[in-house]
Write a protein that binds this DNA or RNA. Structure first.
Lengths: 198, 198
DNA sequence: CGATTCTTTGAAAACAGTCAATCTGTGTGG
DNA sequence: CCACACAGATTGACTGTTTTCAAAGAATCG
């Protein structure tokens, strides 16, 4: 069982942002379920209910959704030290519209909704940390919306590469294209333009 | 002073989602600052720090941002019973990248950050309500991102009209175009297509 | 090495942006 | 009450970008 190193990553992460007592940390540890994922393994299928919150200790995942034509669209990536969830399904405990899968071998920590809520209720520092996390997620979403309505595909590509280099280096280009809202062919041609004009 | 009706709107709204005692409600009322806005009046200029949270009692506002070419992009609308803020500026108390203005005669209620935090700390029900509000805002943002990366301009237009009819009917079309990430001319032509083919 | 998966390329068609002009409705001042 | 200004919406002609479809090259993995 590769339990310990996985939790160590989380513990180190948590200590950076949040002061919790050793006892509280123990509670957090006790309620966590570690899970190892192979490449392409699914964590959530649309239609299911997402019952946990999920911290990525290592590897890379994505949140995506199929449109009416069966084409999938990458809404969000997650790498180590990120959280990934379908918040809508989680908050309302209703069937998910989104899917989550690992893009490479990954390990994650899961807490059930009730356990996590319990932790938030009993550990004020964790609640404060978590609220800040949600606030930042919203800010990032707004920034992305602004980018999508105001910038060209080329600008968005460069911005993504610059802002999330670690993610960029871990995911296939056709998923970057999907994330940017353009076709893989267009992305390919944009990249070609850079190398020929520069 | 048109103080009372403005707060009545808020009170009615709050009661729908949140149970607070009369005393708590009084605290909330006491710390609110009402403000009337004329059409085009600004609530926040980029570069300033957004120091309050803002509830719209009546009228219509928008959150927008200028790009490097000086073109403005509407990131969000707000009408009665909505909140409007630059959360990034609010949370970190740093200069705003966004602007907020009234699109028609509007009245809003403002709470300073410290007053609001005080209220959240002393009124658990308000805190729970507020957390839920933030969660829903995030879900809506994610839905919008999905729409922007997966749907055509035409689909996004119809979707917006259907999902937010009240907003749609209050704002000029060129701002709808800006919100959808297309030019006003393109929007105008999309609309023309509907009337000729149907 | 054979089979996926990922990326690139080409050509045509669909789509969206720009610029400039016009049209429409609203409200204001003379 | 009219004339005018102004903001908002539309249109035309043109240009530029993006998609689509089909095919072919890389790269990766068992």
């Amino acid at each position: 069982m590769i339990f310990v190193p996985m939790f160590e990553v989380f513990e180190k992460y948590l200590h950076e942002f949040c002061e919790v007592s050793p006892e509280d940390l123990q509670s957090i540890r006790d309620t966590a379920t570690p899970k190892n994922l192979r490449k392409r393994q699914s964590l959530l299928h649309d239609g299911e209910i997402w019952r946990s919150i999920c911290f990525i200790s290592s590897g890379c995942c994505r949140l995506y959704r199929y449109d009416n034509d069966g084409v999938d669209h990458t809404v969000r990536f997650g790498i180590e030290n990120w959280w990934i969830s379908d918040w809508e399904s989680y908050h309302h405990q209703k069937p998910a519209k989104y899917n989550i899968e690992a893009l490479s071998t990954s390990s994650v920590l899961l807490w059930t909704k009730s356990d996590w809520e319990q932790l938030l209720n009993t550990i004020p520092a964790l609640k404060i940390f978590y609220d800040g996390l949600a606030a930042r997620a919203y800010e990032m979403a707004q920034e992305r919306i602004y980018s999508l309505i105001s910038s060209s595909a080329e600008q968005r590509y460069l911005e993504f590469q610059k802002t999330y280099p670690k993610v960029f280096n871990k995911v296939p280009l056709h998923m970057v294209a999907s994330y940017l809202g353009i076709s893989r062919e267009t992305l390919s041609r944009l990249r070609k333009d850079f190398t020929t004009t520069k």
